[in-house]
């Protein structure tokens, strides 16, 4: 059996990297190896995980410096004998080992607008066409692994922005509401509010790391920015509004 050389963060903020050699089998992912490490050498190694199938978004970590899901990182992608460094997400307060306090994300979730749908048709059905919900369904693939939140430099490097900036995960949620064919929220609750969208400088790291392949920047953030331009910055639209006297 091949051996993996792991370097894993152990402890809290005053912890350190500890090196381990762990045997593994072909076809395993990093999380399998971490589990084997846990069962054989480090019984108290703290790691979050649930489905081990890339569907729940629990096992986020930074592997060789890149934010990833441990369950979706195949051992075959490493060179033989390569040191694999596994660190906790760095944008969030460390609890212990590979587990961080991601509660900020849940606090942001409370502030996001809720969908307010127009009433159903007389027969009790709501009619929406597939072509009108394709975009929103892409956003709803989100598994809330918070890797996009972790990699986003707006909060990763400047935690003080957490009070004004919702982060990529919540921009997809905002786009879901803003683009919903039946939603009745006023713009002041969605696009015009913005949730710190202006802080994003579209450097696209969120899109690069998204394990679900959601085009966060191109399909959520930029379209939202463009909707804000409609409201505030479009010279032609402003002129038309002025002439027609409409708000």
């Amino acid at each position: 059996m091949p051996q993996a050389h792991l370097k894993v963060w152990r402890g809290g903020n005053d912890g350190e990297y500890v090196e381990y050699d762990v045997e593994y089998e072909e076809g395993m992912v990093v999380l399998d190896v971490v589990h084997r490490l846990q069962a054989t050498q480090a019984g108290d190694l703290a790691v979050r995980w649930n489905c081990k199938a890339g569907k729940c978004g629990s096992c986020s970590a930074e592997i060789n410096g890149k934010p990833k899901l441990q369950c979706m990182c195949q051992m075959g992608t490493f060179e033989a004998g390569e040191t694999i460094t596994i660190a906790p997400l760095k944008a969030f307060p460390l609890i212990r080992d590979l587990v961080t306090d991601v509660s900020w994300n849940f606090r942001v979730a409370e502030t996001m607008p809720e969908l307010k749908l127009s009433p159903p048709d007389a027969d009790g059905h709501r009619r929406m066409h597939q072509i009108d919900i394709d975009r929103e369904q892409e956003f709803r693939k989100c598994i809330e692994c918070f890797i996009c939140q972790d990699v986003c430099h707006v909060i990763r490097d400047h935690p003080e922005n957490q009070s004004v900036f919702a982060g990529p995960r919540f921009f997809t949620q905002l786009a879901n509401v803003a683009m919903h064919p039946l939603d009745q929220n006023p713009s002041s609750a969605t696009v015009a509010h913005g949730f710190g969208l202006d802080y994003c400088n579209i450097t696209k790291c969120c899109t690069e790391v998204c394990p679900e392949g959601i085009h966060i920047t191109d399909n959520a953030i930029i379209p939202l920015k463009e909707r804000r331009v409609d409201e505030y910055y479009d010279p032609v639209k402003a002129l038309i509004r002025k002439i027609s006297g409409k708000k």
Partner: peptide, 10 residues
């Protein structure tokens, strides 16, 4: 179990 009571999967 080894370790302490904080986030200890074992």
């Amino acid at each position: 179990v080894e370790g302490n009571i904080q986030y200890n999967p074992g």
